[in-house]
């Protein structure tokens, strides 16, 4: 079930330069709790940013965390343009219309004990809910996150509390020096990789997974309008079905469906 609900910004948690963790509360507590309870890791919301005057369409943002009991939605937003800038600088009490939860998230079950979660940049955001849900399934996930330098690493504390965190930075200021695709933890015998990050990073990881026969899921960030599978703007060309909507069949895809 998808919900169209108003959420009030209750808090903006400061992070590194410009980024923000938005903590949002549904105005309709009951429906909000239902929507949050349904949220699966890798799913996203489509948020209207009326405060940004030049922004016409809603913006897709991954669900970073969803706490149905407390009735809180967490979105991690990187200032990438007009709409995200307004989100990062929104005031407490500002109200946003949010359509959620959208798309299909990551798939895993209790057998995923040898799965590695790999993320980079703002792609780290959905990994928090993923790791938490894996915890609930009795798993302690291993996670590898990467950034340009130590100041650009995000959510390290939160992630460390829900699994084993490995880090790589391009300049070596934290963890191993280099890209995530060069990190030594990748050499272990993984059965599954669940990945979200910039396209070149995901393609690099997908190539490694393919070569070593590791099952691999990636989360795509195609430009979207409706988020509901109605406009067909967000398509990805798949091996099995041709053009499919990333917003509805994705954003998470198994790499064997992609023409990468």
């Amino acid at each position: 079930m998808k919900y169209l609900l108003d959420f009030k910004l209750s808090e903006t948690r400061p992070t590194q330069a410009g980024d923000a963790m938005l903590v949002l509360e549904p105005l309709d507590k009951e429906k909000g709790a239902a929507a949050l309870a349904e949220a699966r890791p890798g799913q996203f919301v489509n948020i209207q940013v009326l405060q940004s005057h030049g922004t016409f369409l809603r913006r897709p943002i991954s669900i970073c965390d969803a706490d149905a009991e407390q009735g809180l939605l967490f979105l991690y937003v990187k200032d990438a343009g007009a709409a995200t800038h307004c989100l990062c600088n929104a005031r407490e009490g500002d109200v946003f219309s949010i359509l959620l939860p959208l798309g299909n998230g990551f798939s895993f079950d209790e057998t995923y004990s040898d799965a590695l979660l790999i993320a980079g940049g703002v792609g780290i955001a959905p990994m928090l809910l993923l790791a938490k849900k894996m915890n609930e399934a009795g798993l302690s996930p291993s996670m590898l996150i990467g950034a340009v330098n130590k100041d650009r690493l995000i959510l390290t504390e939160e992630l460390s509390s829900v699994g084993n965190l490995y880090i790589s930075t391009d300049d070596g200021t934290s963890g191993e020096k280099g890209f995530v695709s060069q990190h030594s933890v990748l050499c272990r015998d993984w059965k599954h990789i669940l990945c979200c990050g910039p396209l070149p990073m995901m393609k690099g990881i997908a190539a490694i997974a393919k070569e070593r026969g590791i099952d691999c899921q990636v989360s795509l960030e195609n430009v979207m309008a409706c988020g509901l599978g109605a406009c067909l703007c967000c398509v990805e060309d798949t091996a099995d079905k041709g053009n499919v909507c990333v917003c509805k069949e994705g954003p998470v895809f198994n790499i064997n469906r992609l023409k990468w």
């Binding site: 195609n222 430009v223 309008a225 067909l232 053009n243």
Partner: peptide, 23 residues
């Protein structure tokens, strides 16, 4: 019909361009 290749959408001032191509 498969429609046109991605990218098929561009946001514009108070509107959008689409090139879905009747998928």
């Amino acid at each position: 019909r498969q429609g046109n290749p991605y990218p098929r959408m561009a946001e514009t001032p108070s509107g959008m361009l689409n090139a879905v191509g009747l998928q």
